[in-house]
Design a protein around this nucleic acid. Structure first.
Length: 414
RNA sequence: GCGAUCGUAGCUCAAUUGGUUAGAGCGCCGGUUUGUGGUACCGGAGGUUGCGGGUUCAAUCCCCGUCGAUCGCCCCA
């Protein structure tokens, strides 16, 4: 029979073990702890939705919809899509589950998301996000609270120093239209100085020229008009309130008036927490206010604001957390003690101690193996003159606890 | 979709300008030493050098293709 060929992992997926998992878990558990401090409740939503949920929310950026989503037809012929983000699904749930009665809702969730993209540093096809949203709150306090949550999360992950909060406003609809007009006029005037990529952007998505990485674009992008001159008084007041709130809450930020969002339903606050330690994929947490999204999903006008953070990117930036140690590792150095040892191990585990046992392979090497297992203490079993003897080594507190649970006298070999 | 770099044992890496039987450490398995201990030694298993062509007396090494990985571009909800 021909040797079976091992199927390979799908491009852009990850298998995690050891330190990678420790890092991942540390990010998630820190998020779960901090989110409670702010009264954000955990929600669960599906990993896939009707394609319309995301297609509608992504509007006219057809590139993203057609090329970058994992879209399939199910057996009934319906088009379904693996979630590329949490926000649209949460908004759908808000509308279809009657969650409007609880508004304003502070929600938190985390899990896998999927984007059909070419993998690179900090970028995968199945990756994982933390997500926090406030749905049904029009006030700038919601933006501030959400940013404070993000800020504290990064602080407690120990990476606040290496990350900066870049803040901008996209204004309201009127502001945005006026600014966009001024930008297009500016870029049209300097067509000749723009890169080919940016000339294409000028047609599809002119705001994106502002954050172009092409050095040829920088002079034109840097000299482009900012949004401030076009802010309506309402939009200006909103941004002011956010800034004042951040300062009051002690959240450090820097203005980046080149920071934009591609989609029209984004209003007012836009922000990104950025690190320089991840190469080209330095954005570690990003979000903004999306007052127009729920209407785009066929719901009533509903103001909302939220953010998402890449768990893998955060996990790469933090210090390695200390691996969890077992309380005891048992080394059975004589096969005649095996039954006794397993009995004791069962007792210890039922008492809530984390215990592993080494009872296979060369008997005389089992102690050496045990010393390599991350554990607070070692319990060894040997046989002398027909008696099973036990020996403890390591952390005193753990040893004392185990000694109280186990019979200390030597047992004859059965 | 485009570009650059890289694919040798389970892992990290060697192998002279192309040269004969592709090595080492770690890990794994077995044995010896030690015997309240993380030591040292001996032995073993494990490779179609990613895959397929080509050049050559001879290819891990050079060339082409392909697959995969990494990093970047595009995109970034």
């Amino acid at each position: 029979m021909a040797k079976a060929e091992t199927p390979k992992a799908i491009r852009g997926t990850q298998d995690m073990l050891g330190e990678q998992v420790e890092r991942f878990q540390h990010v998630v558990s820190t998020f779960d702890r901090v989110r409670r401090l702010y009264g954000f409740q955990r929600v669960e939503i599906p990993v896939f939705e009707a394609t319309a949920v995301f297609a509608r929310s992504l509007g006219e950026t057809t590139d993203v919809v057609s090329k970058e989503m994992y879209t399939f037809e199910d057996r009934g012929g319906d088009s379904v899509t693996l979630r590329p983000e949490f926000t649209a699904g949460l908004c759908r749930a808000y509308l279809t589950e009657g969650w409007q009665q609880y508004a304003p809702l502070k929600l938190a969730t985390h899990g896998p998301v999927f984007r059909y993209e070419r993998p690179q540093k900090g970028r995968y096809r199945q990756f994982h996000q933390l997500d926090a949203e406030v749905i049904g709150a029009a006030e700038p306090q919601a933006d501030v609270e959400l940013l404070a949550l993000a800020d504290q999360l990064l602080y407690e992950l120990g990476i606040a120093d290496g990350v900066t909060l870049q803040l901008n406003t996209l204004g309201d609809a009127a502001t945005r239209d006026a600014w966009r007009g001024a930008l297009v006029a500016h870029f049209e005037k300097h067509r000749g100085e723009l890169s080919e990529d940016s000339l294409a952007r000028l047609e599809r998505n002119p705001l994106r020229i502002l954050d172009s990485k092409d050095p040829r674009d920088r002079p034109v992008a840097d000299s482009a008009p900012g949004i401030d001159a076009h802010l309506t008084s309402e939009a200006g007041a909103f941004f002011e309130a956010v800034i004042k709130g951040l300062d009051a809450a002690g959240v450090a930020w820097t203005r980046n008036d080149r920071l934009v969002r591609g989609l029209d339903y984004y209003r007012h606050t836009a922000f990104e927490f950025v690190t320089d330690r991840l190469g080209a994929q330095g954005t570690v947490l990003a979000g903004g206010r999306y007052d127009g999204l729920i209407e785009a999903l066929g719901g009533p006008h509903t103001p909302a604001v939220g953010w998402a953070a890449g768990i893998e990117r955060l996990a790469m930036v933090i210090e390695a957390p200390e691996a969890e140690k077992l309380d005891i590792v048992v080394a059975v150095e004589d096969d005649r003690a095996t039954a006794r040892a397993f009995k004791d191990v069962a007792c210890l585990r039922r008492s809530g101690l984390m215990v592993d046992i080494i009872a296979t392979g060369s008997a005389r090497k089992r102690y050496d193996k045990a010393t390599k297992v991350p554990a607070k203490s070692i319990l060894s079993y040997v046989v002398r003159e027909g008696l099973i003897l036990t020996g403890f080594h390591g952390d005193g507190e753990t040893v004392d606890r185990a000694k109280r649970l186990l019979p200390i006298e030597a047992h004859p070999v059965a």
